[in-house]
Amino acid sequence: MLLLALDTATPAVTVALHDGTDVIASSSQVDARRHGELLLPAVDRVLAEAGLKLDAVTGVVVGIGPGPYTGLRVGLMTADTFGLALGVPVHGVCTLDGLAYAADIEAGPFVVATDARRKEVYWARYADSRTRLTDPAVDRPADIADQVAGLPAVGAGALLYPDTFPGAHQPEHVSAAALAALAAEKLAAGEELPAPRPLYLRRPDAQVPKNYKVVTPK
């Protein structure tokens, strides 16, 4: 097994190769505005580091968010197209699950929260690093204060709002290494992974126009 994992749902552009046992190469760069430019060179670098070519990959794993859409789509489109060109399966993993896995918490509950911008967070509650208790959601931190009170929390969304998440700690962003390890574990256990479809959680901003603006002077 050789999994290529990538995630662009947080400010991190992160890529990893996993051989079914271990992560054999990885790269993470934090730059919220350059996902499109950084991802392919990162894939190239990670493959070179492992001394492998892309055609050795047997499956692609991609973070499906939730996360800011423009960046999120870079990873999904790249993964989809690799799948098409190589004829290998593409597996989705919830980005928050990747963060929860990397947090390595045996006994929860705890919360994962990432920055959803517009003063909101993407978040979910976990029983432990492998067990999510709630569907990913997008909310204002103050509105979920009751639901997360007293719980440890990880992720940039938690670190950004200490009033709501006083127990916030690292990791800040998801790593493809964690994503790949989680996917490898689930695949080995015969679990089915979600389709590589984005978790947007918000509708597109678009207003149906009421009427055209009258131009005749009053």
Binding site: G36, L54, M77, T81, F82, A85, L86
Partner: peptide, 10 residues
């Protein structure tokens, strides 16, 4: 652009 890059690379 993301699709084209991935396709060309692969």
């Amino acid at each position: 652009v993301s699709a084209a890059k991935a396709y060309a690379y692969a």
